[in-house]
Design a protein around this nucleic acid. Structure first.
Length: 155
DNA sequence: GCCAACGTTGGC
DNA sequence: GCCAACGTTGGC
Protein backbone atom coordinates (compact mmCIF):
# COMPACT_ATOMS: atom_id res chain seq x y z
CA UNK A 1 0.00 0.00 0.00
CA UNK A 2 1.28 3.46 -0.94
CA UNK A 3 0.71 6.84 0.67
CA UNK A 4 -0.18 10.13 -1.01
CA UNK A 5 -0.90 13.77 -0.32
CA UNK A 6 -3.73 15.41 -2.25
CA UNK A 7 -4.36 19.16 -2.28
CA UNK A 8 -7.70 20.86 -2.50
CA UNK A 9 -8.79 24.40 -1.88
CA UNK A 10 -11.31 24.19 0.97
CA UNK A 11 -13.38 27.01 -0.55
CA UNK A 12 -13.86 24.71 -3.51
CA UNK A 13 -13.90 21.26 -1.89
CA UNK A 14 -13.01 20.69 1.77
CA UNK A 15 -12.63 17.59 3.90
CA UNK A 16 -16.03 18.36 5.43
CA UNK A 17 -17.54 18.38 1.94
CA UNK A 18 -16.07 14.92 1.39
CA UNK A 19 -17.42 13.66 4.72
CA UNK A 20 -20.93 14.79 3.69
CA UNK A 21 -21.00 12.93 0.37
CA UNK A 22 -23.05 9.74 0.05
CA UNK A 23 -20.93 6.92 1.47
CA UNK A 24 -18.37 9.68 2.08
CA UNK A 25 -17.01 8.99 -1.41
CA UNK A 26 -16.21 11.52 -4.11
CA UNK A 27 -14.42 11.57 -7.44
CA UNK A 28 -11.21 13.57 -7.27
CA UNK A 29 -11.96 15.49 -10.46
CA UNK A 30 -10.51 18.56 -12.10
CA UNK A 31 -6.89 17.44 -12.25
CA UNK A 32 -5.36 18.91 -15.41
CA UNK A 33 -1.72 18.02 -14.97
CA UNK A 34 -0.05 15.20 -16.89
CA UNK A 35 2.24 14.12 -14.06
CA UNK A 36 -0.71 13.69 -11.73
CA UNK A 37 -2.75 11.96 -14.39
CA UNK A 38 0.07 9.48 -14.89
CA UNK A 39 0.31 8.87 -11.15
CA UNK A 40 -3.43 8.14 -11.05
CA UNK A 41 -3.05 5.75 -13.96
CA UNK A 42 0.24 4.04 -13.20
CA UNK A 43 0.94 4.18 -9.49
CA UNK A 44 -2.16 4.75 -7.42
CA UNK A 45 -3.97 1.61 -6.29
CA UNK A 46 -7.21 0.80 -4.50
CA UNK A 47 -6.52 0.69 -0.78
CA UNK A 48 -3.81 3.35 -0.85
CA UNK A 49 -4.12 6.06 1.76
CA UNK A 50 -3.90 9.79 1.20
CA UNK A 51 -3.63 12.91 3.29
CA UNK A 52 -6.27 15.53 2.55
CA UNK A 53 -4.39 18.82 2.32
CA UNK A 54 -6.10 22.22 2.38
CA UNK A 55 -4.32 24.71 0.11
CA UNK A 56 -4.76 28.39 -0.74
CA UNK A 57 -6.46 29.18 2.56
CA UNK A 58 -5.75 30.82 5.91
CA UNK A 59 -4.09 27.73 7.40
CA UNK A 60 -2.78 25.44 4.70
CA UNK A 61 -1.94 21.97 5.92
CA UNK A 62 -2.89 18.32 6.37
CA UNK A 63 -6.39 18.01 7.82
CA UNK A 64 -7.36 14.37 7.42
CA UNK A 65 -6.93 10.92 5.95
CA UNK A 66 -8.78 9.28 3.09
CA UNK A 67 -8.63 6.09 1.13
CA UNK A 68 -8.35 5.47 -2.61
CA UNK A 69 -11.38 3.38 -3.57
CA UNK A 70 -11.26 3.17 -7.36
CA UNK A 71 -8.87 2.74 -10.21
CA UNK A 72 -8.28 5.68 -12.54
CA UNK A 73 -11.12 6.42 -14.96
CA UNK A 74 -12.01 9.34 -17.26
CA UNK A 75 -12.89 12.57 -15.46
CA UNK A 76 -16.41 13.42 -16.71
CA UNK A 77 -15.94 17.16 -16.18
CA UNK A 78 -13.53 17.32 -19.14
CA UNK A 79 -16.47 16.65 -21.50
CA UNK A 80 -18.83 19.21 -19.94
CA UNK A 81 -18.73 22.61 -21.67
CA UNK A 82 -20.22 24.18 -18.55
CA UNK A 83 -17.60 22.74 -16.18
CA UNK A 84 -14.71 24.83 -14.93
CA UNK A 85 -12.18 22.34 -16.21
CA UNK A 86 -13.82 21.61 -19.55
CA UNK A 87 -11.23 20.53 -22.11
CA UNK A 88 -12.46 20.98 -25.69
CA UNK A 89 -9.51 18.98 -26.99
CA UNK A 90 -10.52 15.86 -25.10
CA UNK A 91 -12.96 13.32 -26.52
CA UNK A 92 -14.84 10.39 -25.03
CA UNK A 93 -13.09 8.11 -27.50
CA UNK A 94 -9.72 9.42 -26.39
CA UNK A 95 -10.07 11.02 -22.96
CA UNK A 96 -7.14 13.06 -21.78
CA UNK A 97 -7.84 13.39 -18.05
CA UNK A 98 -8.41 10.81 -15.33
CA UNK A 99 -9.66 10.81 -11.78
CA UNK A 100 -9.92 8.37 -8.90
CA UNK A 101 -12.57 7.99 -6.23
CA UNK A 102 -11.60 8.76 -2.65
CA UNK A 103 -13.38 7.89 0.58
CA UNK A 104 -13.26 9.88 3.80
CA UNK A 105 -11.56 8.02 6.62
CA UNK A 106 -11.08 10.54 9.40
CA UNK A 107 -10.15 14.08 10.25
CA UNK A 108 -7.02 14.63 12.28
CA UNK A 109 -7.67 15.67 15.88
CA UNK A 110 -5.02 18.30 15.38
CA UNK A 111 -4.45 19.45 11.79
CA UNK A 112 -0.81 19.67 10.83
CA UNK A 113 -0.23 23.08 9.27
CA UNK A 114 2.32 23.83 6.59
CA UNK A 115 4.15 25.95 9.18
CA UNK A 116 4.40 22.91 11.47
CA UNK A 117 5.61 20.73 8.60
CA UNK A 118 8.28 23.31 7.81
CA UNK A 119 9.31 23.46 11.47
CA UNK A 120 10.11 19.75 11.17
CA UNK A 121 11.87 19.95 7.84
CA UNK A 122 14.82 17.92 9.15
CA UNK A 123 12.61 14.90 9.88
CA UNK A 124 10.56 15.45 6.72
CA UNK A 125 13.49 15.95 4.37
CA UNK A 126 12.47 14.94 0.87
CA UNK A 127 8.73 15.38 1.40
CA UNK A 128 7.63 16.75 -1.95
CA UNK A 129 4.98 19.14 -0.70
CA UNK A 130 7.77 21.03 1.10
CA UNK A 131 10.02 21.25 -1.95
CA UNK A 132 10.68 24.72 -3.25
CA UNK A 133 8.27 25.67 -5.98
CA UNK A 134 6.31 22.44 -5.60
CA UNK A 135 2.98 22.84 -7.33
CA UNK A 136 1.84 19.29 -7.92
CA UNK A 137 -1.61 18.77 -6.46
CA UNK A 138 -0.91 15.08 -5.79
CA UNK A 139 2.41 13.78 -4.48
CA UNK A 140 3.63 10.45 -3.11
CA UNK A 141 4.48 10.36 0.61
CA UNK A 142 7.15 8.07 2.03
CA UNK A 143 5.93 5.76 4.84
CA UNK A 144 8.30 7.30 7.39
CA UNK A 145 6.99 10.76 6.52
CA UNK A 146 3.42 9.52 6.74
CA UNK A 147 4.03 8.18 10.24
CA UNK A 148 5.82 11.32 11.33
CA UNK A 149 3.01 13.61 10.16
CA UNK A 150 0.50 11.47 12.11
CA UNK A 151 2.76 11.85 15.13
CA UNK A 152 2.66 15.63 14.66
CA UNK A 153 -1.12 15.32 14.63
CA UNK A 154 -0.95 13.74 18.07
CA UNK A 155 -1.76 10.20 16.98
C1' DG B 1 -3.22 41.31 -4.50
C1' DC B 2 1.63 40.16 -5.26
C1' DC B 3 4.86 37.38 -7.23
C1' DA B 4 8.06 33.30 -7.65
C1' DA B 5 8.06 29.01 -9.71
C1' DC B 6 6.77 26.11 -12.97
C1' DG B 7 3.89 23.96 -16.89
C1' DT B 8 1.96 24.60 -21.46
C1' DT B 9 1.45 26.60 -25.93
C1' DG B 10 2.71 27.78 -30.34
C1' DG B 11 5.64 30.23 -33.76
C1' DC B 12 9.75 29.46 -35.97
C1' DG C 1 13.46 21.03 -30.87
C1' DC C 2 14.01 25.77 -28.99
C1' DC C 3 12.26 29.27 -26.33
C1' DA C 4 9.38 33.44 -25.40
C1' DA C 5 4.91 34.39 -23.94
C1' DC C 6 1.37 33.23 -21.28
C1' DG C 7 -1.41 30.86 -17.67
C1' DT C 8 -1.71 28.64 -13.17
C1' DT C 9 -0.52 27.47 -8.48
C1' DG C 10 -0.27 28.63 -3.97
C1' DG C 11 2.11 30.81 -0.01
C1' DC C 12 2.35 35.09 1.97
Amino acid sequence: MAYWLMKSEPDCFSIDDLAKRPNQISGWDGVRNYQVRNMFRDEMRIGDRAFFYHSSCAEPGVVGVMRIVSNAYPDPTQFDPKADHYDPKSTRENPRWLQVDVQFERKLDKPVTLATLRAHEAQLKGMLVLARGSRLSVTPVRPEHWDYVLKLAGE
